[in-house]
C-alpha cells in the first residue's frame, strides 16, 4: 500500500515524467480513498498552471489572452 508521503513523491514526479502503469495504478487506488492526497494533486496541477500563467504575464503583459 502506498503511503501518503510516497504518494506526494509520485505526484511530484508525475509533473516531470510519465509514470509507469504500476505506479499509476497504485496512485489512483490511493487517491480514490484519500481526500488529502487528491487535494495535493489538485494543488500540484494548480502550481503548474500558475507557473505557466506567470510566464505569460511576464511575456506579454499587454495581451494576456494569447498563450504562445
Amino acid at each position: 500500500m502506498l503511503t501518503c508521503k510516497d504518494a506526494t513523491r509520485l505526484m511530484s514526479e508525475a509533473q516531470d515524467r510519465p509514470l509507469s502503469v504500476g505506479e499509476k495504478l497504485q496512485l489512483e487506488v490511493h487517491l480514490a480513498m484519500c481526500r488529502g492526497c487528491s487535494n495535493f494533486r489538485e494543488q500540484m496541477n494548480f502550481l503548474r498552471l500558475a507557473c505557466r500563467r506567470f510566464m505569460q504575464r511576464r511575456n506579454g503583459d499587454d495581451d494576456g489572452s494569447s498563450p504562445s
Partner: peptide, 9 residues
C-alpha cells in the same frame, strides 16, 4: 506516513 489531520491538504 499518512497525513496528520491538521496538515491534510
Amino acid at each position: 506516513a499518512h497525513w496528520r489531520p491538521e496538515a491534510r491538504p
